[in-house]
Nucleic acid binder design. Structure first.
Length: 583
RNA sequence: CGGAACAUAGCGCAGCCUGGUAGCGCAUCUGCUUUGGGAGCAGAGGGUCGGGGGUUCGAAUCCCUCUGUUCCGACCA
């Protein structure tokens, strides 16, 4: 490609509404332009990268035995009513009407359509398993689109759906997809983790999210430093400490702590580390449907955690006897029950159920609330001073916790979800009556698996992991062009033109994606260098009259430092570059 | 959906408080000069100051309203 014929849409300054690096750089490099909130046009440069992601995904899906299809973006409401999601899905489902006033939606996903296809086309167990995929635009009317292409309303997604005669077959394909995803993200050059996304409880359908590690991610991922365990922070189990509670040595004392009603306050006021302070959080208990109808007031339940730990609401909700969704007790109820403000609640002699976090249960000689305003207890000890019955996992894991699989310690990093695979079982096939005949000629509902990759999001995620102050540094697999040839002094040196054109042609003949910066003399060398670096081409060759006079051309890799360019005899450049490109 | 902010040339911004000629940098166009890190000089074009309404002799500026955009949170995965 010649720069003179391409659309170079680079920006010196980044638009003020872009806050994350990938968004800024995609705008600055001229990859995308915003049309409206959450809607973007892909410019020629950006589209080249998007197509590369697609191509890699397509190759690996084909390799893994999946069959490509292409389903409509616009889907009839009938199918969604059949699955029940026309009513369940909520505002994210963009509903539209045609000229006959019939209801349709812009597909946010395609379970309904593919299941409809499967029930019509598949009739025998002998045809199974089958795995269909498509790479198609999806539309989700996000409440808050943000970060450019990272969370947009219209986006490109690879979605695959597999159909099976039994759970074993589903499991096989699931494992196969898991492997294919690992291969895809490895080929894309990304630092990623497959994250266990199942509930951990019995009966939870198997599911993994694939996260690219990047500080701008929206999810916290906990992963072991020695094993391949990884989970969402909310999902990761905080295992019980492997030591016994130290002996009680201090005397239980009630001390004045006027107005010290947060852990931080108390910690400073008493000079005690927050991990020696226990906090007590009161939440509402669970009611049966009948009790709710009868207007019964829910009992309160006390949750006790170490001061430096955070309550995990998901874990709390799952415990029998605790309301889901979690409801914190109001200040009035606490005052009514205990006669003190929330900041001074403690576990001693509570008239309600007390659940103690695993880590809090092994603290000795701790500080806690006294259930009396402006007073705390110090030197408190379990069983000697305060009894409890239940120990539960109530907290979020923190960096350095033991990995739940027993190997290594947990690291916590932000992740961008780029892929998600899950076994959905018969939810859609049952609702849509997608059956095949089994060996006995009996209709059986098919089992289903579902596998997604955010294709456009992958592009943004790749940039989040690969940039410097000069711009994007593309992994080779994603670079829109592999190499740029920069002409300098072309207007006064025939040799610059001849040499650069010759190299350009030679590389093109080798099917190398080469970018020749042949912009005229109004474009200064600095501009050409800056653009090539911003757009992130992995390799750069500079041809100038100055260098050619001495028979020299210059090569520099995008990852190299500014001063690291190497000078080469100009006759050697082709073989040098071929070597760099692994040709 | 709750909270907050912003909207002035293609992009980045000033002007608004204290009402009175719409400005700066980059980009664009023309001419000359220049060519190894976002060139110089000279000139030019480009704005119903987001829309509507109000106050006023007079509104980018003050008030009301609508729309759009962004940020934080909730939701989603």
């Amino acid at each position: 490609m010649r720069a003179s014929q391409f659309l170079i849409a680079t920006l010196k300054e980044s638009p003020s509404d872009a806050v994350v690096k990938s968004h800024q750089l995609m705008l600055r490099a001229g990859m995308i332009r915003k049309l409206a909130s959450g809607l973007y046009t892909w410019l020629p440069l950006g589209l080249r990268t998007l197509r590369k992601v697609e191509a890699i995904i397509r190759e690996e899906m084909d390799e893994a035995g999946a069959l490509e299809v292409l389903m409509p973006i616009v889907q009839p409401s009938e199918l969604w009513e059949e699955s029940g999601r026309w009513f369940e899905y909520g505002g994210e489902l963009m509903r539209i009407k045609d000229r006959h006033n019939r209801d349709f939606c812009m597909g946010p996903t395609a379970e309904e359509v593919i299941t409809d296809l499967a029930r019509n086309e598949l009739s025998s167990y002998k045809q199974l398993p089958k795995n269909f995929y498509q790479i198609q635009t999806k539309f989700r009317d996000e409440t808050r689109p943000r970060f450019g292409i990272m969370r947009s309303r219209e986006f490109l997604m690879k979605d695959a759906y597999s159909f099976h005669a039994n759970a074993d077959s589903l499991n096989d394909t699931y494992q196969r997809m898991h492997k294919a995803y690992n291969k895809i993200f490895t080929r894309l050059g990304l630092d990623f983790r497959p994250v266990n996304a199942d509930s951990g409880s019995i009966g939870g359908a198997l599911s993994h999210e694939f996260h690219v590690l990047a500080s701008s991610g929206e999810d916290d991922i906990a992963f072991s430093d020695t094993s391949d365990y990884a989970a969402n922070v909310e999902m990761a189990e905080a295992i019980a400490p492997n030591f016994e509670r130290p002996a009680a040595t201090d005397t239980l004392t009630c001390v004045d702590t006027p107005d010290q009603n947060s852990i931080e306050d108390v910690s400073q006021f008493l000079g005690v580390n927050s991990n020696q302070i226990l906090k007590t959080i009161l939440v509402e208990g669970e009611l049966s449907e009948k009790e709710q109808k009868d207007g019964v007031t829910a009992p309160l339940v006390a949750l006790v955690l170490r001061g430096d730990h955070e309550l995990n609401e998901l874990k709390a909700e799952k415990i029998d006897g605790i309301a889901a969704p979690l409801v914190l007790a109001s200040e009035e109820r606490i005052i009514k029950l205990l006669g003190c403000k929330p900041g001074f609640v403690g576990p001693k002699d509570l008239p309600i159920d007390v659940l103690v976090d695993r880590s809090a249960a092994v603290v000795a000689n701790f500080v806690c609330g006294s259930n009396e305003d402006d007073k705390h207890l110090t030197g408190a000890n379990w069983q000697r001073d305060i009894t409890f019955l239940h120990v539960e996992d109530l907290r979020n894991v923190v960096e350095g916790d033991a990995s739940p699989d027993g190997e290594g310690r947990l690291n916590i990093k932000r992740g961008i979800e780029v892929g998600h695979i899950f076994q959905i079982g018969d939810k859609y096939s049952k609702a849509l009556k997608a059956t095949v005949l089994d060996e006995n000629g009996k209709a059986k509902v098919m089992h289903m698996g579902c596998y997604g990759i955010g294709v456009s999001r992958v592009v943004a995620a790749a940039i989040e992991q690969n940039f410097d102050d000069r711009g994007i540094i593309w992994p080779k697999a994603l670079a829109p062009f592999q190499i740029s040839i920069v002409q300098i002094d072309a207007n006064k040196s025939e040799e610059v033109i001849e040499r650069s054109e010759a190299l350009y042609q030679a590389l093109k003949d080798l099917n190398v994606e080469v970018f020749l910066d042949d912009r005229d003399k109004k474009t200064s060398p600095g501009v050409k260098f800056a653009d090539a670096e911003l757009m992130g081409f992995p390799h750069r060759v500079v041809m100038s009259s100055r260098g050619l006079k001495n028979g020299i051309v210059e090569y520099k890799g995008r990852e190299d430092e500014k001063g690291d360019a190497v000078e080469l005899p100009c006759d050697d450049i082709l073989s040098f570059v071929k070597n760099k490109l692994d040709l």
